[in-house]
Design a binder for these strands. Sequence first.
DNA 1: TAGATGACTAATA
DNA 2: CTATTAGCCATCT
Length: 103
Amino acid sequence: MSGVFEEIYKIVKLIPKGKVTTYGDIAKCLGNVRLSRVVGYALHSNPYFGEVPCHRVVNREGRLSQNFAFGKINAQKQMLEREGVYVKKDNTIDLEKYRYKFN
DNA sequence: TAGATGACTAATA
DNA sequence: CTATTAGCCATCT
């Protein structure tokens, strides 16, 4: 794997259980917010399942992904709830409450 | 080999 | 206020 992807996976792995983060935050950690798009693609590209908790990554609104790699968005929802993160019916979470800040 | 595309976000009109 | 454009990197066609 190359470049930014490795960085992305490394960062996502650091997200503690029961917490989530946004593409934008990860992108900022990489040095450029516009990398948020690359972050999304990195996870879509079917990363190291079991190593990279991609289900803890949501968009800026706290909404879960529609194209979740390992099944439906429903699967991601259940994984989060299993970790103690409450997911609303519209597939969103309280960023204020669960958002994990890096740096 | 070159061009289009995508789990996004922020800035501008 | 809403709508559109730009910018990033790796993969697919």
